[in-house]
Design a protein around this nucleic acid. Structure first.
Length: 480
RNA sequence: CUGGCUGUGGCGCAGUUUGGUAGCGCGCCAGAAUGGGGUUCUGGAGGUCGCAGGUUCAAUUCCUGUCAGCCAGACCA
């Protein structure tokens, strides 16, 4: 016995030793992704893709419940279109990939691979919108976009990533603003209720807002290493694009008007987030509501009479309501399987062997705490379902606790600098909202304004960093 | 983009200093035993050393370039 022969996949670097390395180890060893021959582009393997599908499924449902419909817009955008909105080009041009040839012929106008689709979508909307009766436009697309990144990391920042982008048009500013915040709300609910990942929501500073937006709202999550991850954004684009693209409709009063516009997106970055928020030294800890496998059955002594039959019977019963796996591989010992499924983050493991069958019971082991319990087979399904909810709640609670422990108040720049070098995390402080101040802070500490949270508290009258009058509290952090 | 490190069967590594066309462990395949926390034994298959040039009688080994990856930073969402 023992582990003199380490047959298992190599150990994962402990997360407190080297968080970045831990992350890379985990995603590769659990078969979520693999690197492709092109820098910054990755293949998402079945286990990773299944997580995305579960996220997609939930969100798509929410989008449709709120009146949105899916469509699809082209991958390629003519350069002239990209350039129509001034701030937008400036923001995205540096990281755009270009198509210059069709076969052997050079194109008259080069085409960019979408870094985001505002421009091409607005171009289409300008053809589709005629009357106030057509509004609102509530469309979404699931696709991938390309941004030529200099340094990349699977899920967190890749040159191509999967996402959804909603693009809506409205008659009034108020409606657009309402939509912008409604979608951010859905994002927050997804993060917390599905991914068990607590987020802070609020508004982006002028410097950090989307290129071409009137206002950008964001949800920010805090990772174990004290860095913040922007997990989703929702933009009120005002009329910036609709004017630039000449999207106009005849209103009730006979006037031609430009509608108000929003866009909002979340990406496969969410997967990176949930890995970093919940993982531990044994590997992944997947939140039950998106885990590809919610419970795995490991039969013990499966060669013995009746064991496998019983395991299969349980499997086919539970799989009606729970995403199940039956690990009937004969060439691995139970202990080996335990470790593998733990590394892969499966929330619940069900052990069933001859002794259990005799007593009409099974052993459950939960991934988050690794606690075991004995359950009567009659109650098994109900118990597993309860356990899945319990694990979700516990993960959300632990993540919140972790975040709160890493959320600090500071009175000045020196304090923040000191704090960030010793125990990085979220910093809350009064802030003047001025760009020059923001730039100073970044230069001095590497910290950026994550958002001006909706949930405000009053900590004083002046900016903690420059002393000018300040009305609002902002969250600061180093960012992914 | 800058600095540091790396690239040898599926995975992890040794070999490179003192050039002579590869070796170990795990995994994989076959058989047997084992089976409640990383099983054991026996037999077997599998690599031309990231890629491209150069030096040399001869390059995994030396030189140059290039691609990809890791870590840190800059930049960027």
């Amino acid at each position: 016995m023992g582990k003199k022969n380490k047959q298992f996949v190599e150990e994962i670097t402990p997360m407190e030793v080297d968080f970045a390395q831990w992350y890379t180890d985990v995603i590769l060893k659990t078969d979520l992704v693999d690197y492709s021959p092109v820098k910054g582009f990755m293949a998402i393997k079945p286990y990773g893709y299944a997580i995305w599908e579960n996220i997609q499924q939930y969100m798509d449902k929410r989008f449709k419940e709120t009146g949105h419909k899916n469509c699809y817009f082209p991958l390629l955008i003519p350069e002239s279109l990209l350039q129509k909105e001034a701030e937008h080009v400036e923001g995205f041009a540096p990281e755009v990939a270009w198509v210059t040839h069709g076969g052997k012929e050079e194109l008259a106008e080069r085409l960019c691979v979408r870094p985001t689709s505002e421009t091409i979508i607005c171009e289409m909307y300008s053809k589709w919108l005629k009357s106030y009766r057509d509004l609102p436009f509530l469309y979404n697309q699931w696709c991938s976009v390309v941004r030529w990144e200099k340094s990349t990391r699977p899920f967190l920042r890749t040159s191509e990533f999967l996402w959804q982008e909603g693009h809506t048009l409205h008659e009034t500013y108020e409606e657009a603003q309402e939509e912008t915040l409604r979608m951010l709300d859905i994002y927050k609910e997804t993060a917390e209720e599905v991914l068990a990942m607590p987020v802070v929501t609020g508004q982006k500073s002028e410097k950090e807002k989307f290129a071409g937006a009137y206002a950008t709202y964001t949800m920010e999550a805090l990772m174990h290493d004290g860095k913040a991850l922007q997990a989703g954004t929702s933009h009120n684009l005002g009329k910036h694009f609709t004017e630039a693209f000449d999207i106009a409709y005849s209103d009730r009063d006979g006037e031609l008007k430009n509608p108000y516009h929003t866009s909002w997106g979340v990406s496969t970055r969410l997967i990176g987030g949930l890995i970093m928020v919940h993982g531990d030294n044994r590997g992944l800890v997947l939140p039950p509501r998106v885990a590809p496998t919610q419970a795995v059955i490991v039969p013990i002594a499966s060669h013995k009479e009746g064991v496998l039959d019983k395991a299969m019977e349980i499997f086919s019963d539970l799989k009606q309501e729970i995403r199940m796996e039956l690990d009937d591989r004969e060439n691995y010992s139970p202990g080996w399987k335990f470790n593998e499924w733990e590394m892969k983050g499966v929330p619940v493991r069900i052990e069933i062997g001859p002794k259990d069958i005799e007593k009409g019971q099974a052993v459950l082991c939960r991934r988050d705490t690794l606690e075991k319990e004995v359950v009567q087979l009659d109650n098994l399904k109900e118990r597993v379902q309860l356990l899945l909810d319990d694990i979700h709640n516990n993960l959300l609670y632990s993540a919140k606790t972790m975040r709160d422990e890493k959320t600090y108040y500071v009175k000045n720049l020196e304090e923040m600098k000191e704090l960030m070098s010793t125990k990085p995390g979220f910093v809350k402080a009064m802030w003047c909202e001025e760009r020059s101040c923001e730039e100073n802070i970044k230069e001095d500490t590497g910290v950026t304004v994550r958002c001006i949270p909706f949930e405000q508290e009053h900590l004083g009258e002046t900016c903690a960093f420059c002393g000018k009058p300040a009305e609002k509290v902002a969250y600061f952090a180093k960012a992914y």
